[in-house]
Amino acid sequence: MVSLNSIEERDVSGGKGSTAHFVWRCGLCKRESSAKFEPGEKPKPYSADANGQFLPFLTLDCRGLEFIGFDPRGIWKCVGAESGTVFSEVDLEEGEWVDYDEKSSLPVGVSNFESQWARA
């Protein structure tokens, strides 16, 4: 498993001033591959209106590699659809999250978390 951070950039060899958010060099052939978040792009919110359909979340410029999975580690933010209540400490590491929205008097949650990679 590898991780990408949109804040940290590393130098890419073979290009003047070229950087990427992820750089990997093959131990056998020494070929370098890289991935970079699109400049200025923020992850797109996902709402209940999507009705469980896959929607674009973010775009990466991948050179010489292809990602096959997404692991939602870290802390996420969710907003209650009915009340606008912000849940700022959402942990999706287990693939689901549940809580209770006091303002709307309804349970809230994320379940059946799935991801899919596609070429842009």
Rank of each mutant, 00 (worst) to 15 (best):
D99W: 03
V98W: 09
S13Q: 06
A35K: 05
D61H: 07
F22M: 03
A20Q: 00
D101W: 05
G52A: 13
G27V: 04
C26K: 05
L55N: 12
L28H: 01
K77H: 04
S111M: 09
W97T: 13
L92C: 00
G80E: 03
P107I: 10
E32V: 14
V98D: 13
I75Y: 03
V86G: 01
K44M: 14
S34R: 05
S105R: 15
D49V: 01
D71E: 09
V86T: 12
A20I: 00
F22P: 00
D61T: 02
S104L: 04
P107T: 13
F37G: 04
P56S: 07
A81P: 14
S88G: 14
E94D: 13
S13M: 07
S13A: 13
C26D: 14
A48C: 10
T85C: 06
E41L: 15
G52W: 04
K42M: 14
W76F: 10
D99S: 15
S111V: 08
E96I: 04
D91F: 00
I68V: 06
G40L: 12
L106I: 06
S13R: 09
E66N: 04
L58C: 11
T85A: 12
S104K: 02
G69C: 10
F67W: 10
L28T: 09
L55K: 15
V79W: 08
N51H: 10
G95K: 10
D99N: 14
G74F: 01
G109I: 06
K103C: 11
C29W: 06
D101S: 08
D11I: 00
D61Q: 08
S83G: 07
G40D: 12
N112Q: 14
D11P: 09
C26A: 10
S13D: 05
G14K: 03
H21Q: 05
R31V: 11
P45H: 12
L106G: 03
D71K: 06
G80Q: 01
A50N: 15
A20S: 02
W97G: 11
A118Y: 00
I75E: 11
N112V: 02
R63L: 09
V23T: 01
G69A: 15
C29N: 13
F67Q: 03
V79F: 03
V110R: 05
V108G: 02
L60N: 06
F87I: 06
L106D: 08
F70H: 02
C62G: 00
S105E: 15
Q53W: 01
I75A: 06
G17S: 07
T19D: 01
S111K: 12
C26V: 00
W97L: 08
G15S: 04
W97A: 07
A48S: 14
C26N: 13
A50I: 09
V110G: 03
D61N: 13
R63E: 14
W76K: 03
W76Q: 08
S88C: 12
G95F: 07
V90S: 06
E38R: 11
V86M: 10
S88A: 15
E96D: 10
C29E: 12
D91L: 04
D11T: 02
S18E: 15
V108P: 02
G74H: 06
E94V: 04
V108W: 04
G40K: 11
A50W: 06
W76S: 12
V108A: 10
R73F: 09
